[in-house]
Design a protein around this nucleic acid. Structure first.
Lengths: 191, 191
DNA sequence: TTGTTAATGTGTCAAATGACACAGTTTTTG
DNA sequence: CAAAAACTGTGTCATTTGACACATTAACAA
């Protein structure tokens, strides 16, 4: 919970009262490795903050092949936005790649927080803008990099992920096959 | 301007007064083909709504090669979020691929709108959530598709873009070279 | 309108990639 | 603990891709 407070503080000014109001609406939970956070056809009615561990957010294409949409790292907020904001079911899935501890904020509480007072509404707006902005920055960065550069970037900024997450999932996350990633790793250790 | 009103209406309820307050802060402008909307090292202090035409949003990687980050279509809001929200300069560029007409909302006006009343603040929050959600949906969709599928998708949903934008830019937008896109097109016309 | 530049179509070839196949290792689970 | 399942390393090979080269056409500007 301390971690969640620190996370929120990073977005700017917020009074102690507002912070408490916000944080008290979050519930601490855990998943064991392999457990699912989101199943197909589920309504996603919460925002999640990952405190520790890694999650695998994936989907299936027309012919049932699994595609990794994201590997979710600690100290990030995440949800399936489309399902959360528009109250639709999702076909995607999300599963714990390791033991995970996280905080959950339900939609009803999210709405309540936004309506509580002007400062909190403003704060949530700032957080949303911030997340939107980082999404785009992240996507643009990725699109400028080759597969190898993406892997080096992971090594640099998410070394734990590289250690704890299976190679095939890392590979599909950076947009290639497990074999090609293997070739890259072999080349890098050779050098 | 009628187009902008219709665009905003798509996000939900908004009173006539609020709509007017919002729309009156937007200025109609135009770019001729080839003109730049954003230059390197610029501060981006506005949000843009594209009424007609296409824009090329691009960047350069470590060794100066140009990468297409997006081709911006009519009836969309766009800005370089990172620069706009955090008041930083950007290294990216944005240039008109055709004659373009657009509306501009300056940051100061954006801030004013958010502070004007609770309903408008709420409305802007809804728009932001909506844009965030579509960004992610779009990105996920793209990551599930092959290059060829992306091209077919463009043909289906953005036929004007395919006609009006140069092949090399379409190619880099969907993540390949101009030659490979050419091979795809040849194959498709053969069939 | 004409010279210049940008855009397109297409072939060749070396390099990168994905699909398979299979052996060795680690992890899970009954 | 033992069997099963998941994960990893690695080789082969057909396919795809990108880089280059160059001819042709379209768009633009002096």
């Amino acid at each position: 919970m301390q971690m969640l407070r620190a996370y929120f503080k990073g977005f700017g000014e917020i009074s102690m009262e507002d912070m408490d109001f916000l944080v008290h609406r979050c519930t601490e939970k855990a998943l064991a490795k392999g457990e699912k956070l989101i199943r197909p056809h589920q309504h996603v009615d919460s925002i999640y903050f990952i405190a520790s561990g890694f999650l695998h957010y994936f989907s299936h294409n027309e012919f049932g092949e699994r595609t990794t949409l994201k590997v979710i790292s600690p100290n990030h907020c995440w949800t399936i936005m489309d399902s959360f904001f528009h109250q639709r079911t999702t076909l995607d899935e999300c599963q714990a790649l390791t033991d995970v501890s996280y905080c959950e904020l339900k939609r009803s509480d999210y709405t309540e927080v936004k309506l509580h007072n002007k400062d909190l509404a403003n704060f949530i707006q700032t957080v949303t803008e911030y997340i939107l902005s980082s999404k785009v920055v992240e996507e643009n960065k990725k699109s400028k990099m080759s597969i190898e550069e993406r892997y080096l970037d992971l090594l640099q900024y998410h070394p734990d992920m590289v250690q704890q997450v299976p190679v095939n999932i890392i590979a599909s996350y950076i947009g290639t096959s497990r074999e090609t990633l293997h070739r890259i790793r072999r080349k890098l250790t050779a050098a």
